[in-house]
Simulated assay, not measured.
Amino acid sequence: MSRHVPSPLRKTARRLLHLLARPMKSDRGRGGVVVHAYRGYGSAKEVFVMGRVFRQPSLGLPFREGSLLRDVIDVVRRLFRWGVKHVEVTLYLNGRQKTVTTDRDGYFDVHLINQPLLPTDRSWHRGELSVIMPSQRTVSSTAEIYVPPAAVDLAVISDIDDTVMYTGVANKLKMMYRLFFKKAHQRTAFPGVAAFYQALFAGLDGQRRRPMLYVSRGPWSIYEVLEEFFQRNGIPVGPILFLREWGLTLQRPLPRRATEHKARLIEQMLGLYSDLPFVLIGDSGQHDPETYARIVHTYPGRIRAIYIRNVNHDASRDDAIARLAKEVAETGCDLILASDSVRMAEHARTHGLISAAGLEAVKTETRRESQLPP
Results as ranks from 00 to 15, higher is better:
T120E: 01
I235P: 03
I113C: 12
I145G: 04
R178P: 06
K182A: 15
P119Y: 02
V311W: 06
S141N: 14
K172Q: 06
Y299L: 03
V49C: 04
S355T: 03
R3E: 02
T120G: 05
V152A: 15
A195W: 00
V34G: 07
R30G: 10
D105L: 00
V53A: 07
L241R: 13
R78N: 07
R81L: 14
E330A: 06
Q251F: 13
P289N: 14
A143F: 12
D334A: 15
W246D: 05
E227N: 06
E327Q: 15
C333D: 09
Y214F: 15
Y41E: 04
A199V: 10
S216V: 10
H347Q: 06
L250N: 05
Y292P: 09
H351M: 09
R104F: 08
V89W: 00
E128G: 12
K326T: 14
W124R: 09
I132A: 03
V342P: 08
H297I: 05
L16A: 04
R3C: 07
P300F: 04
D318T: 13
T259H: 06
F180M: 01
L179P: 00
S158Y: 15
G203M: 03
F196K: 07
P6N: 10
M175T: 12
T167P: 05
V35Q: 02
V215P: 07
F63H: 05
L16D: 04
S26R: 08
V34W: 01
A37F: 00
G238N: 05
L248P: 10
A150I: 07
K174Q: 13
C333T: 09
T364P: 01
G168N: 11
